[in-house]
Design a protein around this nucleic acid. Structure first.
Lengths: 244, 244
DNA sequence: CGGACAATTGATCTACCTCAAAATTGGTGG
DNA sequence: CCACCAATTTTGAGGTAGATCAATTGTCCG
């Protein structure tokens, strides 16, 4: 399976040009590919994983379940992401990672990632950088939950998920996949399903977006961005990503 | 200034035992020490820092200002923290770092941190790990903002800040410094000052805490923890920290 | 074609907000 | 050491975004 790790390579190369040995070393990583059904947990709170998971296809999310049984989602992940890279140095999982839809993932043993990092410090830097962007997204998420009302919170997330997909070539014009139900959206934004629905209708009513059959289309990018107070700086998407 | 970097050393050694060369290399880092008045920005959004900042004494916080002028704080930092370590690989600041009270910080050039990381991969891991914990705290913060009401959100933060201080020996019994005004607390938790005040009174009324003259005392740890749904796992504090 | 899930709508309730003022507290200069 | 100012904390009184509960109406898939 020579091209299995292509999504990872593409992501790393959107930030920096890799040397041939670096590319080769990445492609030589031992992986276990696995298909997951929708709504299936990949890693759970309190687990002590010995491998991390690269998304090849599909959508994953990370979340916690509270004592009360409510769920809080704090990230969505698509091809090229390694959502639980943090388990490389934080042995004990403090949250869950699960699939939102049917997905394909590749498991990479921690040992081989560590070996890679020691041998190629620059790759270590790129992986590290990736976890830093993860944190930057969390920060922006906090800002939204603390200070934005429901419609802007939703608008902001739509902008983010659209750009994330576009950066890896998964958008078509101003459209992209959006396999997230309103209930899931509520769990991510700290809103009730009902209120998500109403806010979404407002955005549609104002002609900013279209959202049907799990496809999002942004009709008025500038206005949607304005509504969400969205400034893409925090995603740290490099010009390289666009150039490619 | 042989002991300037002691807080950093103490923090790293709470996770792993360092070799003599590693200790020496850290202590040999070139630093610029600076005193800051309260409410002073150290790094601002859009800056491109060439150094990171180690807290030696005092309290810092990271925050963003929205278009509307409101502020959202997403972290507090005390001695031993390097709040803007992420600028090592994310060149452009996407938020601000400022002092909450009079503080002492040490600036360390990125170049020398990078050199240290390449030479001692294990130190790189420890720094990396630290930024991962940063992210873990953000995740928990999101859970609180999305799913906890005001009193538990506050209770949770009190637990966190108490433990953070205790882990580096800054607590006395169940008491610790708490130089955070109710307005600042509101900016951190996405609440109005008025509501922070009322929730705080409730916690006091129920005899869980005492908070006066900028000193927090936790009277009923178990109940406060219960109120906040606080599980310290996400802080990833190692047994070593307690042993020391 | 039925069953399960997802979206939509209606009605009521409440946690938290805003505005406004009063009471404390802490720091500072005389 | 006291008086005074500014920043905090506290209290009161509405107002509202968003929650909850409960149906109803799609929509997709086997």
């Amino acid at each position: 399976m020579p091209q299995t790790l292509a999504p990872l390579l593409r992501k790393l190369e959107s930030v920096a040009v890799l040397s041939e040995p670096e590319r080769a070393a990445i492609l030589a990583l031992p992986v276990t590919v696995r298909q997951m059904r929708a709504d299936h947990d990949i890693v759970r709170e309190r687990d002590r994983p010995t491998q991390s998971c690269l998304v090849l296809d599909g959508w994953l999310c990370r979340y916690k379940i509270l004592e009360t049984g409510t769920r809080q989602i704090f990230s969505f992940h698509i091809a090229g992401d390694v959502p639980d890279l943090q388990s490389l140095f934080l042995n004990l999982m403090d949250h869950n990672l699960g699939s939102l839809v049917q997905s394909t993932v590749a498991f990479i043993p921690h040992d081989s990632i560590r070996a890679l990092a020691v041998k190629f410090p620059r790759l270590a830097e790129l992986f590290w950088r990736d976890t830093l962007i993860d944190a930057a997204i969390f920060r922006e998420w906090i800002v939204g939950m603390g200070r934005r009302d429901a419609p802007s919170r939703i608008a902001h997330l739509l902008c983010e998920l659209y750009l994330k997909q576009r950066a890896i070539g998964l958008a078509r014009g101003y459209s992209c996949d959006f396999p997230i139900t309103q209930a899931v959206l509520g769990d991510a934004l700290g809103l009730s399903t009902v209120h998500v629905n109403r806010s979404l209708m407002e955005l549609r009513g104002r002609g900013l977006i279209t959202l049907e059959k799990h496809v999002l289309t942004i009709l008025k990018w500038d206005e949607l961005q304005g509504e969400g107070g969205f400034d893409p700086t925090y995603l740290h998407i490099e010009p390289l990503a666009v150039a490619a």
